[in-house]
Computed example of a mutant assay.
Amino acid sequence: MPVGELLARTSSRELTEWMAYERVTGPLDMRLRGEINAGIIAATVANANGAKRTAKPGDFLITWFKRKRTVQELWQEVMKANTALGGSIRKPE
């Protein structure tokens, strides 16, 4: 889907929520999740070559974040993304 069509069909709020979700879980597009496949291959190669301990695919995956963030930190990132996308905050009535 072209970016223009995506922006026409998706609200700023929904885009911000997806951006926050992706920052926590990693890329949504499985074509970008090649590190999973690479991890499987790397673990297989390591184990076939006599690794000192049994290697697992997870041993070779990218660490997205060094530490867990608090809810407040995640909320701040969501608010920054919302602002960057030109979103606004509506107060409940």
Rank of each mutant, 00 (worst) to 15 (best):
D29I: 05
T16H: 07
T70P: 06
N37W: 13
L15G: 00
A20E: 11
F60A: 01
R13K: 03
T54E: 12
E93V: 07
T25R: 11
W75Q: 14
Q72M: 10
N37V: 12
N37H: 13
T83K: 12
K66C: 10
L74I: 06
S88Q: 08
A84H: 00
N47G: 04
T54K: 15
Q76R: 05
N37R: 15
R13A: 11
A51W: 13
L85G: 03
T70F: 06
N82T: 04
E77W: 00
W18F: 06
L15F: 02
V3W: 00
I36E: 06
N47Y: 02
L15C: 01
D59Q: 06
M1T: 07
W64H: 09
I41Q: 12
V45A: 03
A20H: 01
T44C: 09
G50F: 02
V71P: 03
E5D: 02
T25W: 02
W75M: 13
A46N: 05
G87I: 03
P2I: 04
A48H: 06
A20D: 08
V45R: 09
G86R: 05
L74P: 01
V3R: 12
V71S: 13
P27M: 11
R69G: 12
A84S: 07
M30H: 03
F65M: 09
P57D: 00
G34C: 06
E93N: 04
K52D: 11
I40Y: 15
I40D: 10
P92K: 02
S88I: 08
R23E: 04
T10G: 01
A46G: 01
V24T: 06
A46R: 01
T83N: 04
Q72E: 09
A38E: 15
E17L: 06
E5A: 09
Q76A: 06
N82A: 11
V24S: 10
A20G: 09
E5L: 13
E73N: 07
L6R: 15
V3F: 00
R90W: 01
S12I: 04
K91E: 03
A84V: 06
I41V: 14
T54D: 07
V78H: 07
V71Q: 12
R69L: 14
E77K: 01
D59S: 00
A55F: 13
G87K: 03
L6H: 14
K68I: 02
A51F: 13
P57G: 00
R33H: 01
L61R: 03
M1R: 12
K68N: 10
